[in-house]
Structure formats: C-alpha cells, structure tokens
Design a protein around this nucleic acid. Structure first.
Lengths: 111, 111
DNA sequence: ACACAATATATAGTTATACTATGTATTTTC
DNA sequence: GAAAATACATAGTATAACTATATATTGTGT
C-alpha cells in the first residue's frame, strides 16, 4: 500500500545519508568506486546506482573531504582509490553528532 | 571549517526525515502546522521553515497519509489540524523499519 | 571465434524536495 | 499605533538522487 510513497521516501533519505556512509567507509580504509558500490549494496542494503555514486564522489572531492589517486592494475581497468582528508575527518565527526542527535530525537517522539 | 558543506548536508538529511518526523508526531496526537513547526524547532532542533512545512503537509495529504480539518478559534486565526490516516499509519511502520535498519547499518560500519 | 556478463569509471537530462522570499490576516505586546 | 507573534500559503531557486547511456577491459559460455 502506497509503495510509491515509500519508494520515493527511501530515495529522499539517501540525500545526505549517502555522503555520510561514504565518508564513514573511507575513514576505515581507502576504497575505489566500484568496491564502495558493491559494499553498500551487500552490507547496507541500499540500492546505490552508478549514476549516483560517481558524481557524489566527485562532489566530495571538490569539497575537499576526500582525495583520489589512480592505481594501475596488473590486469584490468585502472581503479580510482579514494581516501579521507583531514578536513573530511573533521566533517565526519560533525555529521556523526548531528546524525546521532537526529536519531535520538526521533526515538523520543516515537513513543 | 567547511561549515558550508555541513550546512548543506544537514538540509539534505531533512529530505526524507522531515516527513518521517511529521508522521511520527501525528501518530501521537493531532496537531496544526504552526504547532508542529514550534515543536520541531524546540524538541528536535531542526531548523524547519514555513516554506518547507506547509507544502510538505499538503504533499502528505495529497498522498493520503494525513488528513486535515479547519478548526475555528474563539479568538484568532483558524487552525488547520492534521491527523494520521490508516494509510499513513501503515507507511509510518514501513518507514520505521527502513530507518532503524539504516541506522544499525551505519553503526556497524562506523567502528 | 563471438556474444554476453562483469568490472570500472563517467556524464547528460529528469525528478523530488528543501530553502528563500514574499504575501495575507488576526491578535497581542510595548 | 507600531511591531511582534500567530497562522497559513505560494512562487522561484538550488541540491542531489535517478535513469539512461557511453567507454573500455577482462572473463565466461557455447
């Protein structure tokens, strides 16, 4: 019932949370785009499209939160590896606080 | 430091969470627009503008998730009270599941 | 050998939703 | 009697996810 609304809603929730997820992932280790996509699909069960991920990574780089370097492979297409910058690390901490506060606030009003 | 990014991010996070918050509030009791705005500002510390709230309430009504009725006041401007429909109640439960799952998933990857 | 799937990155155009600014009207406060 | 608070509303803009498409290499199946 009202699957369209839920579907649209879910896509709206991604706005914001996706960048938060990417920065969180890159805090742990450097990763390349395709790897991030597969990881998010498997472990977070969020349907992330290529047309969403790559522009997002570019935006985060433009904003100075992440950095990238091409890495040639012994076989196959070169990969673009992303790392969190110190600026990105600071932003991530800030986002974490806001995210936690939002979650707790909603939890409070939902009972 | 990168306040612009955090600021923009925070506004993006609202896309999706705001409708979730409104439905959650209206599950508890019927409320009118201005009341919702004040409540969210005080208790959830989310900067919600009138130009965001009223169109959002109209969207939720168009989608059949909430209903509204005008209530004349003994003094002052009439208030438009909103209530959660049964459809809205079902949608809210679905959203809750997705929201909880998202939160837990992010928690897992953040350590 | 050839087609198709998987790997890997990228962009153009569309859609949905929050933000800014503005407008209307009534009541309360200084 | 002027300003602030209450109460609702809309038009135009900006942001970011989605769809579709493109390029190129490697692996798999027949």
């Amino acid at each position: 019932m009202n699957e369209t609304f839920i579907h649209k809603w879910q896509s709206q929730v991604k706005k914001g949370t996706l960048s938060f997820i990417l920065l969180t992932l890159l805090k742990g280790k450097e990763m390349y785009g395709y790897e991030i996509m597969e990881y998010v699909l498997k472990h977070i069960a969020i349907d992330i499209a290529e047309g969403t991920l790559y522009p997002l990574l570019n935006r985060l780089k433009t904003d100075g939160l992440i950095d990238s370097k091409w890495v040639e492979q012994p076989s196959g297409i070169p990969r673009k590896y992303y790392t969190l910058t110190s600026e990105g690390s600071i932003a991530l901490e800030e986002m974490k606080k806001i995210w936690e506060h939002l979650y707790e606030s909603i939890k409070k009003i939902s009972k």
